[in-house]
Amino acid sequence: MGKVEPREIGGILFDKDGTLIDFNRTWFGITMELAGLAAGGDDARARQLIEAGGYDWEMKKFRGGSVVAAGTINDIVDLWHPELSLEEKRRLIREYDDYTVKEGSSRAVGIDGLQATLEALAAQGYVLGIATNDSEAGARATATALGLSHLFSVIIGYDSVLRAKPYADQLHLFAEKTGLPPRKIAMVGDNAHDLEMAHAAGAGLAIGVLSGNSTLDDLAHLSDVILGSIAELPAFFAKRSDG
């Protein structure tokens, strides 16, 4: 992937959790509830499952790149229920997906300045989209609950494509639906798999944000640009008109 100038970008594709949504404030309680169900009400076992999923009890946050922070519901079910048959796992995935669509949207906490940032980028002429390892239904429900659906031209979940992040499929689907070539698309995310997808798909820019679970060290080698949060994007992309 070759870095392009901001003025060459026409579309911005966002990861959802940790990038648009405050990950820990939105998902810790939900994940604890699912772990409690998986553990049959055993609190100690539930804490073990949460820790296996990537929660750092000292830091009080999920680690960047961990199964809960970066994986799909399929990955969580595989981790927590390795003993189940394939059909049993499929049933549980459907149940977990239904639960997270409802709870994830109703409890979603946006990153500071979320709506103003997206409105500013739309006013600057960018085509906006979401690409998440949550389900498409979950992403749509969250966007609707936060009153943001009208700002996104395309919303893509792990189940919208054959292969979830870090594969290129989600960004390529965004390109297909918008008519923008990948090199005119910027991918914005808080986890390595977001930026790995950008590279795999030939995106114009891979932009890391530190608003989620990853550190500067986690993202530096994969990012063309690292920002504190998406709130810095309108000023960054204003450079498009400078040249």
Rank of each mutant, 00 (worst) to 15 (best):
K3M: 06
V4Y: 00
V4T: 00
E5H: 11
R7M: 06
G11H: 06
I12R: 02
D17A: 04
D17T: 07
G18R: 08
G18C: 08
T19R: 05
L20C: 11
N24L: 02
R25N: 14
G29D: 13
E33L: 10
A38T: 06
G40I: 05
D42C: 00
D43G: 00
D43W: 09
A44T: 13
I50S: 06
G53K: 02
G54M: 10
Y55E: 03
D56L: 07
K60W: 10
G65Y: 04
G65L: 09
G65I: 06
S66F: 07
I76Y: 02
V77H: 04
H81Y: 12
E83V: 00
S85V: 00
R91K: 15
L92V: 05
T100K: 14
G104N: 09
R107H: 14
A108D: 13
I111M: 14
T117L: 09
E119D: 08
A120N: 06
L121H: 07
A123L: 12
G125D: 06
V127Y: 12
G129E: 09
I130T: 04
I130F: 02
D134W: 02
G138W: 01
A139T: 06
A141C: 01
T142N: 01
L146I: 00
H150E: 14
F152M: 15
F152T: 11
V154D: 02
I155T: 11
I156H: 13
G157H: 04
D159P: 02
S160Q: 03
S160Y: 06
L162I: 12
K165L: 10
K165Q: 11
Y167E: 15
Y167F: 14
A168Q: 09
Q170W: 00
L171T: 09
L171D: 04
H172L: 15
A175M: 03
K177S: 03
L180E: 00
R183G: 07
M187G: 05
M187I: 13
N191C: 09
A192E: 14
A192H: 04
D194I: 07
L195N: 01
E196S: 11
A200T: 00
G212W: 07
T215I: 10
L216A: 13
L219S: 09
I226H: 13
L227K: 14
S229M: 10
I230H: 09
A231W: 08
F237T: 01
